[in-house]
């Protein structure tokens, strides 16, 4: 899979630069020298890594001006925009990969975003928190209140998450809309799991194409 050099790079990358399992997977999926658009790129940690280590043509969209400032200050080509609108101007199949990491549940029209991602990108990489994790199910069942867990820490009235999506929900939408799952990864913390992901994974990463 990965060369010794790659592994060494990745060892730094995961805990120090990114510290997120889904970023590690994205780093593995994205091929050297490819073009990547990161939606909701924050301060551009992933993009900076992809540019430096994967020689990628890296672009990003971010809605927070302070985060865009940080990203541009580190030399990245990031522009301030809403994801729901930020893709409209790009021609079809502009990027090799369009990445949406931990943001799908915050978009107003996730289905439109998904379709825009596979229009603008040859591949879409989507990482999202699994709202069907056992702790959320348990919490709802036992307390009768909107789940508030380690992975879903927000109060219902003060959450950025406007769409609650589980792993089977997402798979169903992809199937229904005629898209193809190229790869899928399921994470418990930063560890990959394969056993009963819809119950045990706290997040999922999908590689989707048209």
């Amino acid at each position: 899979m990965a060369s010794a050099v790659d592994t060494a790079v990745r060892a730094d990358f995961v805990p120090e630069v990114l510290g997120r399992g889904d970023y590690q997977i994205i780093g593995e999926i994205v091929a050297d020298g490819s073009s990547v658009l990161d939606l909701g790129c924050g301060e551009g940690e992933l993009l900076a890594w992809l540019e430096a280590q994967r020689n990628c043509k890296a672009r990003g969209v971010e809605i927070s001006p302070t985060k865009v400032q940080k990203a541009v200050s580190r030399g990245l080509s990031v522009y301030q925009s809403d994801i729901d609108e930020g893709l409209a101007d790009y021609p079809d199949q502009t990027f090799d990969y369009v990445v949406l990491s931990q943001t799908l549940q915050e978009t107003l029209k996730p289905r439109d975003v998904l379709h825009e991602m596979v229009r603008v990108g040859k591949n879409a990489i989507i990482a999202f928190p699994n709202f069907g994790h056992w702790s959320a199910r348990f919490s709802l069942l036992t307390t009768g209140r909107a789940p508030k867990t380690k992975h879903l820490p927000y109060e219902w009235f003060d959450t950025p998450n406007v769409h609650f999506v589980t792993i089977p929900d997402f798979e169903e939408l992809v199937r229904r809309d005629g898209l193809t799952v190229q790869k899928s990864f399921f994470l418990r913390g930063d560890r990959r799991i394969t056993y009963r992901p819809s119950l045990l994974a706290d997040s999922a990463v999908f590689l989707i194409s048209k």
Partner: peptide
Amino acid sequence: IVRALRGRVKDVAYVELP
């Protein structure tokens, strides 16, 4: 300007400062 550049896949950074 930014949208016109995006439409041509140009290298553009944009920020609206408060």
